[in-house]
Amino acid sequence: MTDVCSAKGCQAPAAWELQWNNPKLHTPDRRKIWLACDDHRQSLSDFLGARGFLKDVVSHR
């Protein structure tokens, strides 16, 4: 089974892991992960970044 992008309606294979947390809900060391394809990496990063949630973006195996 191939991991797919987390963007709504996208079924493209995931190429990136957007690691994030909500400091109001999660401990500082907790990381949630959204997967992103190349086309949605920036828009998903912008969404999380605007809220101060984005911690790191790394390649998905």
Results as ranks from 00 to 15, higher is better:
29 D>L: 09
43 S>T: 13
53 F>D: 09
9 G>W: 07
15 A>H: 03
30 R>E: 10
40 H>R: 06
25 L>V: 10
37 C>A: 05
38 D>P: 00
2 T>N: 12
48 L>G: 08
29 D>G: 06
22 N>I: 04
30 R>F: 11
49 G>Y: 08
59 S>Y: 10
50 A>H: 13
60 H>S: 09
37 C>T: 03
31 R>K: 08
45 S>F: 14
44 L>P: 08
42 Q>E: 12
22 N>V: 04
43 S>V: 13
57 V>Y: 07
51 R>C: 03
49 G>K: 11
46 D>C: 12
12 A>R: 13
17 E>R: 15
21 N>P: 02
29 D>Y: 07
3 D>A: 15
51 R>F: 08
22 N>E: 04
11 Q>F: 10
3 D>C: 05
9 G>M: 07
27 T>I: 04
18 L>M: 03
4 V>W: 07
7 A>E: 12
23 P>R: 00
32 K>R: 11
7 A>P: 02
31 R>E: 04
29 D>C: 01
47 F>N: 13
44 L>N: 08
45 S>T: 15
10 C>Q: 01
2 T>R: 13
57 V>N: 06
30 R>P: 00
58 V>N: 05
14 A>D: 01
52 G>P: 09
12 A>M: 06
48 L>M: 09
45 S>C: 15
57 V>M: 09
34 W>Y: 06
28 P>S: 00
16 W>N: 02
46 D>W: 11
50 A>D: 14
30 R>Y: 12
1 M>S: 15
56 D>F: 08
52 G>H: 10
38 D>C: 01
23 P>S: 03
15 A>C: 01
49 G>T: 10
60 H>P: 04
6 S>H: 09
52 G>T: 11
36 A>W: 04
51 R>M: 11
26 H>D: 15
8 K>T: 15
27 T>G: 04
42 Q>P: 05
53 F>Y: 15
52 G>M: 11
40 H>S: 06
31 R>N: 02
28 P>Q: 02
18 L>K: 01
18 L>E: 01
30 R>H: 12
11 Q>R: 11
60 H>V: 04
59 S>L: 14
10 C>E: 02
2 T>D: 13
50 A>M: 12
27 T>A: 10
47 F>H: 13
17 E>T: 05
5 C>F: 08
10 C>D: 02
6 S>I: 04
49 G>N: 14
40 H>W: 04
45 S>V: 15
35 L>I: 03
35 L>Q: 05
38 D>H: 06
24 K>D: 10
33 I>H: 04
23 P>H: 00
36 A>D: 01
49 G>M: 09
12 A>T: 06
58 V>I: 12
56 D>Y: 09
11 Q>A: 11
8 K>N: 14
